[in-house]
Every structure is written in structure tokens, then in C-alpha cells.
Design a protein around this nucleic acid. Structure first.
Length: 327
DNA sequence: CATGTATCGTTACATTCCTT
DNA sequence: AAGGAATGTAACGATACATG
């Protein structure tokens, strides 16, 4: 979001040194710098990555520069690490291989990078205001967000407002008062989202942003293969309104097919499967299965299979393996 | 009343087919 | 080949209806 979102931007320079004989040369250099620069802080290479933010916020507290008591909450601080002065600062999370691994030491994460002669790192701390969320501000922020994201994109990002609500709010047609609990959840979500948003979010292929008021770039369309469609249809035949969990599982199953494993294929996620089920229900309603079955026919007649055979080939049970036609 | 969900019609994208 | 038209369908936003 805008720069005004941050009440303060604090930069710290971090010096890392390895205890022992290898730090002699660096030590000399560092002391020289630290004389000029009060904000230079020494850090042990064995320190945890996760403790960085807390370490640097502590002096702010002591100086009384941070009035908000909750400022140490993770959701209020965006931490970036700039490994080299000419390198781009990256969010703390991007240095962590997997979730739950934020307790890795700096040495583990950065390795030899810490010990070259000019080793110095910059930690950027972006502190955020706690917005005083009201029904009105929440609606305003929603409208603002919808200038950059589509309703469905926000829904996909776990926005607490459903796509329907977002649509109504954007058109000033949401006549109910948004509950305090909902506003609180939205505030939390919004802060978290703004904090985790990468600097170059505009280049994010998976989450393209709107380009202007009228023409919007949709998410990249996924194309289901001939191998995958029978799987989806069999599942649909068994249950046309599957649960979220089932659809997530189905997406995982689809990602295991040879087609998906091929390098460069887009991964199937829950939303793709959900959309497919929505569209398939629509197809079934429209043509009373006609549309869907015509699709079967055209698809498989070209492959030399009879329609009936193919349709019968799709087992009632989801557990039965479906053999894909050979092309 | 506040919110979630299903459905509908539309849009935009991927692919195929046809013409040059 | 190139590229434009046609086709099929995933993704989308609006809205009606359901839920508690």
C-alpha cells in the first residue's frame, strides 16, 4: 500500500562477526565504521533469524520513539533484509526455506556470505499504524483494494469478505452494517496482507493486478488435459457439490498426473477445481447433461473411442483408477 | 440483520481450423 | 509459416436466495 501506511521506516545496519581468529580483519573495519555510525549494531552469526526484528525494536522502545504498545506484534512490523548494499531488500520470510524454520541461525541461512571482507547487511523495519477500523474505513479500503485486485483475487487471498459482499460494497449496494467482528478480522487480514506483499507484487505472475478500471487481466487460465477431465467428471458424477477438503484433495491428485508433472505446467489449486465444478454444474443445468456429453463425444471420437465406452469407463467410485485415453 | 453460497450471464483466454 | 476466425470453457462479477 502507500508509503503513508507506514508511520516510520527504520533502517539498521547489521554487522556479523564470527568469534575467533577469522574476524580480526573484519573487526578492524567494523570498529572504524561504528565510530561514525551510531546505528551500527553487532550481531552474532549464531543469532536466530527470527530474533532480528525484536532485537532492533528494543532500542526504539527504550528511546520512547514507538508509542504503540503492540508494535512488537509480528503483524505490525515488516522486516526486510538487504544482504548487500546494491542488492534488493527481501522480506524476512524469503530467507526461510520452509514455514516453521524461522529459528534458523544467520550462519545457516547466509553461510559464507557473512564472512567476506565487506560483509554488512541492512535490516529494514517498516512499522505500521494500527488503523482505527470502522465500517466506513473498511468499505473505503475495500474499494481501494478493488482498484488493484479483482473480487475473486481478494477472495482467493482469504479476504474475510466474500466475493458477493465485495461486489456489493464496491457498488455501494451493501446496505447492512458490517459487524465489529468482521471489521476487526478485515483489519487484521489487511495488515497481514500489506506486510507480506512483496515490493514487486506487480510482477507477480500468479496474481496479476488489475490494469485500469475497465480492462482487467484475469488470472492465467488453466487448461485441463484429456487425462485430467475424466478424473474431474468421475468425481463430479459421484458428488456434484464436494467439500472444500475434497476439492483440495482432487487438486492434489491432478497435480500428480503425468501432464501436470511436465515442466512448466501450471499447478492446479483448489480455486481451479472449484471453478470447474461451478462451470460443470452450469453446463449440466443448461443442457441437462447434453453439453457435457457432447464434449465427451467430440473429445473421444477423435481418439477412436465410442462415447458409450468412455462414459461407461468412468467408474462410479472415485477410488477406481481411470485409464486415460492414449493420444 | 449480517453474512455466506449458488447460480446466472458475460468475458477473456487457449486451442483448433481455415485461408492466404 | 502466419494470422485471423471460430469454438470451447475457465474465470469473472452481479444478484437472488439461504442460513443462523
Amino acid at each position: 500500500m502507500e508509503e503513508s501506511e507506514y508511520c516510520e521506516k527504520v533502517r539498521f545496519r547489521v554487522v556479523l562477526h564470527r568469534p575467533g581468529n577469522s574476524s580480526v580483519e573484519q573487526g578492524a573495519k567494523f570498529s572504524e565504521i561504528s565510530e561514525q555510525d551510531q546505528s551500527f549494531v553487532y550481531i552474532e552469526s549464531s543469532s536466530n533469524l527470527s530474533s532480528l526484528a525484536a532485537k532492533f525494536l528494543q532500542p526504539l522502545y527504550e528511546q520512547g520513539r514507538v508509542e504503540d504498545k503492540d508494535i512488537l506484534k509480528a503483524s505490525n512490523v515488516k522486516v526486510f533484509i538487504q544482504v548487500r548494499p546494491t542488492w534488493k531488500p527481501l522480506p524476512l520470510s524469503s530467507f526461510v526455506y520452509k514455514q516453521n524454520q524461522s529459528d534458523l541461525s544467520l550462519e545457516t541461512v547466509f553461510g559464507p556470505l557473512l564472512y567476506v571482507n565487506d560483509s554488512e547487511m541492512v535490516v529494514h523495519l517498516h512499522l505500521c499504524n494500527e488503523k482505527n477500523w470502522t465500517d466506513e474505513t473498511a468499505r473505503d479500503v475495500v474499494k481501494q483494494l478493488l482498484q488493484s485486485y479483482s473480487q475473486t483475487q481478494l477472495e482467493r487471498l482469504n479476504c474475510p469478505f466474500s466475493q458477493g459482499m465485495l461486489s456489493q460494497i464496491s457498488r455501494d449496494q451493501y446496505y447492512c452494517k458490517v459487524s465489529a467482528e468482521k471489521i476487526r478480522l478485515f483489519g487484521q487480514w489487511y495488515n497481514a496482507m500489506m506486510l507480506s506483499k512483496p515490493e514487486d507484487a506487480d510482477d507477480n505472475e500468479d496474481m496479476p493486478l488489475k490494469r485500469g478500471s475497465y480492462v482487467m487481466q484475469r488470472s492465467k487460465k488453466i487448461v485441463f488435459s484429456k487425462e485430467e477431465l475424466p478424473l474431474l467428471r468421475a468425481s463430479f458424477k459421484a458428488l456434484s457439490h464436494p467439500s472444500t477438503q475434497r476439492m483440495t484433495e482432487l487438486a492434489e491428485e491432478l497435480n500428480k498426473t503425468e501432464f501436470r508433472k511436465t515442466h512448466g505446467r501450471k499447478k492446479v489449486d483448489f480455486c481451479h477445481v472449484n471453478n470447474w465444478f461451478k462451470n460443470e454444474r452450469s453446463r449440466v443445468r443448461k443442457g441437462n447433461h447434453e453439453f457435457s456429453q457432447v464434449a465427451y463425444r467430440t473429445e473421444y471420437s477423435m481418439l477412436g473411442s465410442g462415447t458409450e465406452g468412455v462414459l461407461l469407463g468412468i467408474k462410479e467410485s472415485e477410488d477406481n483408477e481411470i485409464t486415460s485415453p492414449v493420444s
